[in-house]
Amino acid sequence: MSSLAAGSYGIDISGTPAIPFGRLFRVELRKSVNTRAGRWLVGITVGAALLAETIFLIVAAAKNLDSAYGDFVAAAAFTSSFLLPIIGIMLVSSEWSQRTAMTTFTLEPHRMRIVWAKMLAGMSLTAFVIAFALMVGLVCNLLFAVIQGQSPDWTFGWSGFFGFLINQTFAMLGGFALACLFLNTPASIVVYVVYKYVVPTLLGIGSALMVWFSHFAPWIDFQAAQAELYDMPLTGSQWGHLIVSGFIWLVVPLGVGLWRIRHAEVK
């Protein structure tokens, strides 16, 4: 059989293994930072985190605020939770706006492998931003202690750490899922902003007005459900809120998006 495959009709694939997943992942990671736009985005995310912590440090020192390690990390998280989703979005949508998906999917026709590689690349960038925020937070906390002439307060804790980790990862994945759904940068960004900033406000108004709604809202408010993560361990109903709202905002768009990518005509 193999002699036939190698013969005049057919191609000999015995010597070519499939592209290892690790390689796809490394290529996707490289693609996320090898354009000017990509580099800027990661650079701004890191820079904004740095800026936020610096301002917070100055204000905290000037105002003698009671600040612990967790507060400094939170200052960085504030900016990165806005920018990480944009990174997640661009990972997917730029392939379509720049039409590079054509090349990507001819070199690896199993499109889902590419999507998983991209998702892992997004998580790596998230981990990088988190590590950076933790480090700068640490330095700021030390500086703060020196300025105040007291010993540093390291209150942050594992629950805070995991909350931070999951929160940032979900932020990135939220953007990623929407980009898979829309395959379009502006639409994904707009919907992400609406879901992150507008929906919670509307849910809040609704809850204030209607009692039945205030029982219902936590099940669809993914932002509020994530906020609980900083106070681990969660209760059963808190886990429930997280899972149900996460299903709505992460799993559903991602599922529909993956179906779309799998069947899309790549132009």
Binding site: F78, F82, I86, P186, I189
Partner: peptide, 23 residues
């Protein structure tokens, strides 16, 4: 650039007001 323009607009209208308010 669409993406950059939209992001900057949203940063200005949704993100910046928060530190401004805290400050």
């Amino acid at each position: 650039n669409s993406a950059a323009g939209i992001v900057v607009y949203f940063v200005y209208s949704f993100v910046l007001p928060i530190p401004f308010a805290i400050g």
